[in-house]
């Protein structure tokens, strides 16, 4: 039995987080799932959303972009294209991004090429705002 769980959040720009945690909650594409130490090996894609983990009984939140997570009994590696900690998110910018995306989306129809792109941008902005709202 593994006695601790290591978490690594890797983005192209940097190692966003690295450390021993008690629990991780990952926004998988098939639904959110939690990981404790000793988890079965799992490979899941990660959706745009909110990732959280507990370290020393304190919860930390990250807004993550699409990617995937690799889980083994002792280690969780999350590879995402961006990851922002809740207290480092620029709320104003996220707010503006959301408004912009909503406006654009209202004008587009589902068949437009742009539609998917704007929809993803909107999801991202919403995720960032949600995470930024945590304390």
């Amino acid at each position: 039995m593994a006695d601790e769980l290591k978490l690594e959040i890797v983005t192209p720009e940097k190692m966003a987080f690295q450390g021993i945690v008690e629990e991780v909650t990952i926004p998988g594409t098939e639904g959110q799932f939690g990981v404790l130490k000793g988890h079965a090996a799992l490979l899941s894609s990660v959706d745009i959303g909110e990732l959280s983990f507990t370290q020393d009984r304190k919860k930390t939140y990250y807004a993550v972009n699409a990617g995937y997570a690799e889980v083994t009994a002792t280690k969780v590696t999350v590879l995402v294209e961006t990851a922002e900690r809740y207290d480092l998110i620029d709320r104003e910018r996220a707010q503006k991004a959301r408004e912009r995306a909503q406006e654009k989306l209202a004008k587009l129809s589902r068949e437009d090429v742009e539609f998917e792109k704007v929809r993803v941008a909107l999801l991202r902005a919403i995720a960032r705002l949600n995470v930024a709202g945590k304390t």
Binding site: G28, T29, L42, L43, S44, S45, Y68, E70
Partner: peptide, 15 residues
């Protein structure tokens, strides 16, 4: 290790 794939390995690869 034999992973559990979520979604299936094929879908994951496509992503």
């Amino acid at each position: 290790l034999d992973y559990i794939y979520e979604p299936s390995a094929k879908e994951l690869l496509e992503k």
